[in-house]
Write a protein that binds this DNA or RNA. Structure first.
Length: 232
DNA sequence: TCATTAATTTTCT
DNA sequence: AGAAAATTAATGA
């Protein structure tokens, strides 16, 4: 068995660890470093913030509130990545909290400009980080428009397998500790639906998910499932 | 075809 | 043991 069926998918498949900007590491003395314990709020909705956040270690989650109290998960900011709420205007509807114990270095606009002056490559790295996010959410907008939830879940699994699945004789192993809930948040489908979809895949012997691994036994079948209409 | 709610069971820490 | 995650069933859009 070879990997000829594999096809590289550009950009991140799951909204975390977007393009790292670890060049900021050597300018941390300019900013203000702070520790956030797991579960604490880094930025509450509506609160003014005009700093650039560099996550040195740990992980943050960014979400956006809705009128009806719902809260849409957007993406994670992992180690060596960055986040910005409002560089330009003061109001926003984002909320950021620490998923793990996290150390963040905050840079003011002035400090960022100072770094830009000294190190132009940082500008490109930050642009790359933002553009990667933009592209991800453009693809997301497309999928939400044109694909059914079952297709979005199946395609995520298929792409994950192509991207990082290890072929081991007769099946693929994906090392991933995504929960069903997380897959639901990423794909915009209800976690109960995700559960049902996994049951269908497992019953057909296509795939099996454990806590930290996903075993793909029939990659081609999984690919075909993307376009099938599922009966629940 | 799916979201939603609620009620249980299973798995993690 | 308590929290989080997963499952199952029922209802409705």
């Amino acid at each position: 068995m070879d990997d000829s069926i594999k096809r590289q998918i550009p950009g991140p498949l799951i909204p975390e660890s977007f393009y790292p900007v670890d060049r900021l590491e050597k300018y941390m003395h300019l900013g203000r470093t702070r520790m956030f314990p797991k579960g604490s709020i880094v930025l509450s909705q509506g609160k003014e913030s005009n700093a650039l956040m560099y996550v040195q270690s740990g992980c943050l989650a960014v979400s956006m509130g809705a009128d009806d109290g719902h809260n849409k998960f957007l993406f994670h900011i992992g180690a060596r990545s960055i986040g910005m709420a409002t560089f330009l205007s003061e109001y926003h509807e984002l909320q950021i909290y620490a998923v793990k114990n996290t150390t963040i270095c905050f840079f003011t606009v002035e400090q960022v400009l100072e770094i830009f002056h000294e190190d132009e490559q940082v500008i490109l790295d930050i642009l790359q980080n933002i553009l990667t996010k933009v592209y991800y959410f453009m693809a997301q907008a497309r999928d939400l428009n044109f694909c059914r939830p079952s297709s979005r879940v199946f395609r995520l699994l298929y792409n994950l397998c192509i991207r990082e699945g290890k072929y081991t004789g007769d099946h693929y192993v994906i090392h991933s500790n995504l929960t069903q809930k997380a897959i639901g948040e990423i794909t915009g489908t209800h976690y109960v639906t995700v559960c049902k979809l996994f049951n269908i895949l497992e019953k057909q012997g296509i795939l099996k998910k454990t806590k930290d691994k996903i075993y793909v036994y029939e990659l081609e079948k999984l690919k075909n499932m993307i376009n099938e209409v599922i009966e629940y």
